[in-house]
Design a protein around this nucleic acid. Sequence first.
DNA 1: TTCGATTTGTTCGTATGTATT
DNA 2: TAATACATACGAACAAATCGA
Lengths: 303, 303
Amino acid sequence: MANDSVTRRMRPNVGEAAGAAPGSGAGSGSGSAKEAQPPTPLGHDGTSGVPLYRALQRRLTHALAEGQWKPGEALPSESRLSMQYAVSIGTVRRAIDELVAGKILVRQQGRGTFVAAHTADRLLFHFFHVVARSRGSTRSTERPVTAPREMPSTSLRKFRRMPAPAGIAQDLGIARGAPVLHIENLLELGGRAVILDEISISARIFPDLDRHRFEQRSGTIYGLYQQAYGISVVRSNERLSAVACPASIAQPLGLAPGHPVLSIRRIAYTYADRPVESRVSWVDTREHEYLSDLWKNDPDHER
Amino acid sequence: MANDSVTRRMRPNVGEAAGAAPGSGAGSGSGSAKEAQPPTPLGHDGTSGVPLYRALQRRLTHALAEGQWKPGEALPSESRLSMQYAVSIGTVRRAIDELVAGKILVRQQGRGTFVAAHTADRLLFHFFHVVARSRGSTRSTERPVTAPREMPSTSLRKFRRMPAPAGIAQDLGIARGAPVLHIENLLELGGRAVILDEISISARIFPDLDRHRFEQRSGTIYGLYQQAYGISVVRSNERLSAVACPASIAQPLGLAPGHPVLSIRRIAYTYADRPVESRVSWVDTREHEYLSDLWKNDPDHER
DNA sequence: TTCGATTTGTTCGTATGTATT
DNA sequence: TAATACATACGAACAAATCGA
């Protein structure tokens, strides 16, 4: 079998929680420790039942929530992280794996691991589920569901500050009556008004956001949340129903009142499952439909 | 650096594609080959750019499609698979990982890895997305979205054989006019008719399925497909829209014709993305809604 | 353009922990 | 108790992509 020089570890990190003289360092030869940060061991006594990689994952998630690395920025390399946290590189990879699967991080071979940013692409494929109605999905060519999604153009219709109604307060986890910003946004697809969005966000989380700033944003709304307020929407939860269109909604959509529309109640969350936005979308599904591909995964979604 | 005794491998499996005398077996020491099956190396010349674990994953998927292991049965253990395919156990785990994530396989520590079966639970959490309308999602208690789903009771309304219309033929990837079974099923939730399903399946894939066999099934419909015909639905794709309820649908649902209903077009697929079923569901969303939790993952969904 | 350093991706191997039978 | 099987963790080597000198 050869090779007994390997340090016979027995849980490397049994230093109990805080404190723990860093220099001791088992594993990975003593030398070359120059310039290296003192390792910040995970508080992990091995008896807790929590796997190491999950503890690290949690640590990374918290760091992300605190904005330690900005969207688009690179995390420290895997080898650096493995040193900083005194775990093996495999454990680091495992911790990152799930964050990548959740689209919170993005890995690029040869470059690094990056915090996912709210680009138009991401929005389209991860949060925007309304597509042109397709009869005859091409088939035969193997790539059935990469529907040619289209970037909507938006126009702001209302922007006002108001006290949170009960339902929205509950959605956002804030007190009833707390100030919220209520935004009404009309979305066009193919030159046609298709969706009316009613967006509610806590005014405390988005201070000094006003009509002008909202309209002058350069990218998507979630991009604005992220770039201007450091809030990354990473997940959303939607409940759909078919209802008769209220008159106030019907008008901007060019529908007769009472016409069936798709009503979507979405709650959008940031890192620690904290709600950020409550949104009701009214969708005219005469020419469009809601696509729920639960789920083609994305094993091979090149590009 | 010490330790040069490690076998200097250079791609173990370079045996070129088919044929390849099995006995030659590079890697994994010569001994202990008793009783072991001759390894069936993956045709993998290392230059193809296809990772080993993905080749193995494909191999496993094909084996599943052929019914090599029945639903509920255990696969060979990871160590056995690693011997059979002459890859490391880590590579086996990696290949299985994605199948587990896709709910095609289920791992149980200490027991084995099993082919997912269509139990009621699986149906409810993976394919059935209509839940009672919730105002005030409990919040506060950390487990927000494990909605208390309810098993629907069903009653068959129609069962007939007919030539496939164009749209359904396309959905199912069969010739127009080929025989299909068309099934109409009414679903009740809480003693109330909520969903009308119109199901279309190829009669060639489900020979001798008749009204009686369909009604006498013991479990879910997908369970019937699986147990009686060896066809496992592993994925589905749904397109939703809001429409005015046709009279023929309105009647069984106890709705006025023209009332808004949610229309869901689903195509259900088996292993190699082969379509199995085309279904249109009409949902009365006055007391229920469609839940699209894209996606809470299921990192910690104990139970 | 080439080359080397850096970083993620793949594969192997080993040891040990924990659940099941 | 012992054997089996999956789960976690570590480490090594090499492949492939990227980027700057």
